[in-house]
């Protein structure tokens, strides 16, 4: 797998958004309720952060009516995947946890 270029992303960096991205990066899509339960926060908190991610184009939202209930599912977009992978690489570079990765100084991380 190709290593992502370390790019620090302030949108992704907020703790709740980082957790949302981490969860969505591992699956194709996840229900809003699953994301909320995984984070252990209120609906309004998830909504706020998902809206930011959606406005940035990192997350797509799909609503489907199942019976009488509306199910909202979230997925990371291609640019969301790139931003998350780049941000994770940037965090790794910052703490320098990968000796021999070619990134040994915080200045190697692009903002």
């Amino acid at each position: 797998m190709r290593r992502a270029r370390p790019v620090f992303d302030e949108i992704v960096h907020a703790p709740n958004r980082l957790q949302i991205c981490a969860l969505l990066a591992a699956v194709d899509s996840a229900d809003f309720a699953t994301v909320r339960d995984s984070l252990g926060v209120a609906d309004s908190v998830v909504s706020k952060h998902v809206r930011v991610l959606q406005e940035t184009g990192y997350v797509s939202i799909r609503k489907a009516t199942v019976g009488s209930r509306v199910r909202t599912s979230l997925a990371l977009t291609a640019s969301g995947h790139r931003a998350y992978d780049g941000h994770v690489a940037a965090l790794r570079a910052l703490v320098d946890v990968q000796p021999g990765s070619g990134v040994h100084h915080a200045s190697d991380v692009r903002r």
């Binding site: 797998m1 699956v27 194709d28 899509s29 996840a30 229900d31 309720a33 699953t34 199942v66 599912s73």
Partner: peptide, 17 residues
């Protein structure tokens, strides 16, 4: 597929790396 999604709350495609 929809039952799986309802029960687990997530969907993971088989065609992944």
């Amino acid at each position: 597929v929809s039952s799986y999604r309802r029960l687990t709350g997530v969907w993971v495609s088989g065609m992944r790396r």
